[in-house]
Amino acid sequence: MRMRVGAVFPQTEIGADPAAIRKYATAVQDLGYDHLLTYEHVIGADPGYYHGWTGPYTMYSQFHEPMVLFGYLAAITSLELVNGILVLPQRQTVLVAKQGAEVDILTGGRYRMGVGVGWNPVEYEALDQDFGLRGKRIEEQIELLRELWTKPSVTHVGDFEKITAAGLNPLPVQRPIPIWMGADYPPGFRRAGRMADGWFPQMRPGPDLVAAKRIVDEAAREAGRDPDKIGMEGRIQYGPHGSDAVVDEAYEWERLGATHVCVNTMGANLPNVDEHIAALSAVVRTDRRLVAASG
């Protein structure tokens, strides 16, 4: 199967008009893209209070809540919907399991849950979770999510989670829903290799990616898993060199083993939804085989 090609939902730039969201999502589908990937942040820090703030997002950065958004998108498109990523350790595991199962049902099994540990301690504090324990907690959460999605009744007692003889109803279409992981450092690469169905490298094609994939593959083999069955999704920034550069990078991702790529038009100085759609359309016109083959 050829590499699948999606688009990054332009969270910070699309605005709050439901009509614009509908226009964008249906255009992505009509252009032939396979999936729509969505970033998340629940709450943003006030840089007027946190002097010297260096995070990429603040209270002025708009983010639609992804699971609610996916319920809306499931009704208007047949795209696969992907978290890229959901900051899992700052959320309640059972509630995430319930929301994920519902999105999977509403999409007819076209849902992929990408998860990661995040980077923002302000957000963790606001959601009453311990930023310092996020790496340990996510591993237990992943195991518990898979139990909740595949068993009618679950009893679990762990370091962070406790369930006594309870279960979700309805269960998802996919049992379990695929869990992918964001990773940008060696512990994350190893965790993805041990536990994930796929991973999102936070880098471009090159020596760093080759080295990271080697760590993922080695961790998979050590855990008794087949590394060839672990997906990899690259992210391609649409920039000043336009669609030609996007297509070239997409084929480089494919050469290095990517099963999926996503075209990101956020941060490309595109003033409105129509321009985001035009950029995605330009990629299709540049090489129709790239997107047409993704389905």
Rank of each mutant, 00 (worst) to 15 (best):
229 K>N: 11
154 V>D: 03
245 A>F: 14
198 G>W: 13
187 P>K: 12
209 L>R: 02
106 L>D: 03
235 R>D: 00
204 R>L: 09
261 V>T: 11
48 G>C: 07
141 Q>A: 13
229 K>P: 02
123 E>K: 03
147 E>P: 02
173 V>G: 02
92 Q>S: 06
18 P>G: 05
240 P>A: 15
142 I>N: 02
25 A>C: 10
198 G>H: 08
277 I>Y: 09
126 A>M: 05
277 I>E: 00
124 Y>H: 06
256 L>Q: 09
186 P>N: 11
3 M>R: 08
222 E>M: 12
67 M>F: 15
167 G>A: 10
129 Q>T: 15
12 T>Q: 15
243 S>I: 07
189 F>E: 00
184 D>G: 12
20 A>E: 10
248 D>T: 13
273 V>R: 01
138 I>L: 07
69 L>V: 05
110 R>T: 11
127 L>M: 06
294 S>I: 08
41 H>N: 07
56 P>S: 05
34 D>F: 12
77 T>N: 07
230 I>W: 08
165 A>N: 11
167 G>P: 06
134 R>D: 03
115 V>F: 09
76 I>R: 14
120 N>V: 04
295 G>D: 13
261 V>I: 14
149 W>C: 03
102 E>K: 11
4 R>Q: 09
103 V>M: 06
80 E>M: 11
56 P>H: 10
17 D>K: 13
70 F>I: 04
179 I>T: 04
195 M>G: 00
13 E>T: 01
135 G>W: 15
96 V>F: 09
43 I>K: 10
125 E>R: 09
87 V>P: 00
3 M>A: 04
48 G>W: 13
99 Q>G: 01
259 T>M: 07
84 G>S: 11
210 V>I: 13
251 Y>H: 11
227 P>Q: 08
67 M>E: 06
221 R>P: 01
60 Y>V: 05
73 L>A: 07
8 V>M: 10
51 H>K: 15
174 Q>F: 09
25 A>Q: 06
233 E>C: 08
286 T>V: 09
269 N>I: 08
89 P>E: 08
36 L>G: 00
157 V>P: 01
39 Y>W: 14
25 A>W: 12
3 M>S: 04
143 E>N: 13
136 K>H: 10
